[in-house]
C-alpha cells in the first residue's frame, strides 16, 4: 500500500485528466475492414500505421519468434509420460484451429472456467506427467501464442449460456464494478470512451482478440491477464493474480464483447 501512497499525487493529476474526450467517431463503411464487426473494433484500428505495419508482416512482427518457440515446444516430449503436445494432438494447424475462438471454456471437473493457459497446464500435469509452466514464463507464453495463432483470422465465438451463464455474469459484474483510488470500472474507459484519450494515449475498446500480444511498452509478449493487472494498477486498485478465477471470468466477458472479431494472435500494440 505504501507504493500507492507515494503515487497519490500523480493519481490525482491523472484523475483530473480523466475528463475524457468523447470518441466522436465519424467512421462509415468498412474502412477498418475485418478489424471491425458491427460496433466492435479491434485494438488494431486504434494503433498508429507504424504499429499496424509491425503486426501484419510475419517477418517484422517480433512476436512471431514466440510462435516459432511454441512450435518447437509443441513437438518436444516431456514429463514422466514422455509425451509431447503432438503425441495426442498431432498437427496443431489442424487440431488447434478454432480453439482460440471458444476459450475460456467451462470445465466440469474444475467446476469453473478454464482459459488456454489453464488447459495447457492440465495437459502437462495430467497427460504428460510434467511440471506445470509458470504463467507469463517464456514457455507458457510461447505455447499460448502458438495455440491461439492457429485460429488467426477466425471470429471470436465464446459460449456464454447454459452452465457458463453464472461465470459470464460474474465477469460482466467485474467489468462494470468501480475499483481503485480512481474509482473507475473497465467500462468507463472501454465502453464509454474508446477513441478518447487517457493522458497521451488513445483508449481502445479493450478487446482481447490479439492476445497474447507483443506490447511496445513491455518489449515482449504478454498475456491478457497481465494486461488486466496493468489496467487495475492504473486505476490504483490492487490487481488479482494472473490465472485467478476473477480474471478468467473477466477474460470470458471480454472475449464475448469482441464476438465476431478475428483472432489476431500475435497482435502488436502500444
Amino acid at each position: 500500500m505504501q507504493r500507492f501512497a507515494t503515487k497519490l499525487t500523480a493519481s490525482f493529476a491523472a484523475a483530473a485528466i480523466v475528463t475524457i474526450a468523447m470518441g466522436a467517431d465519424a467512421d462509415v463503411g468498412d474502412k477498418y475492414g475485418a478489424y471491425k464487426v458491427e460496433d466492435r473494433r479491434s485494438g488494431f484500428t486504434y494503433a498508429t500505421k507504424e504499429t499496424q505495419r509491425i503486426q501484419v508482416d510475419d517477418f517484422e512482427n517480433p512476436a512471431m519468434i514466440w510462435v516459432d518457440d511454441g512450435e518447437a515446444l509443441w513437438n518436444k516430449a516431456e514429463g514422466e509420460a514422455s509425451k509431447s503436445c503432438a503425441s495426442c494432438h498431432n498437427d496443431a494447424a489442424e487440431s488447434m484451429k478454432g480453439v482460440a475462438t471458444v476459450f475460456p471454456k467451462y470445465d466440469p471437473k474444475l467446476g469453473r472456467m478454464k482459459n488456454v493457459e489453464k488447459q495447457i497446464n492440465i495437459c502437462r500435469t495430467e497427460r504428460m506427467k510434467a511440471k506445470p509452466w509458470k504463467l507469463e514464463s517464456n514457455e507458457m507464453l510461447a505455447m499460448t501464442v502458438y495455440v491461439r495463432h492457429q485460429s488467426r483470422g477466425m471470429p471470436m465465438n465464446v459460449k456464454v449460456d447454459g452452465e457458463v451463464a453464472p461465470f459470464f455474469e460474474a465477469g460482466k459484474k467485474f467489468y462494470y464494478q468501480r475499483r481503485g483510488q480512481l474509482d473507475l470500472a473497465c467500462g468507463h474507459c472501454h465502453v464509454d470512451n474508446p477513441g478518447g484519450q487517457m493522458r497521451a494515449n488513445i483508449l481502445s475498446q479493450g478487446q482481447s482478440n490479439g492476445f497474447p500480444t507483443y506490447r511496445l511498452k513491455w518489449q515482449r509478449v504478454g498475456s491478457i491477464h497481465r494486461r488486466f493487472r496493468g489496467c487495475n494498477k492504473q486505476v490504483r486498485a490492487i490487481p488479482y493474480k494472473a490465472g485467478s478465477e476473477e480474471y478468467t471470468n473477466l477474460e470470458l466477458y471480454v472475449a464475448w464483447r469482441g464476438r465476431g472479431l478475428p483472432v489476431e494472435t500475435p497482435a502488436v500494440r502500444n
Binding site: M198, R199, A200, N201, N270
Partner: peptide
C-alpha cells in the same frame, strides 16, 4: 514521442 497514459 508519446509519454504518459496507459501505454507510457
Amino acid at each position: 514521442v508519446t509519454i504518459g497514459g496507459c501505454g507510457g
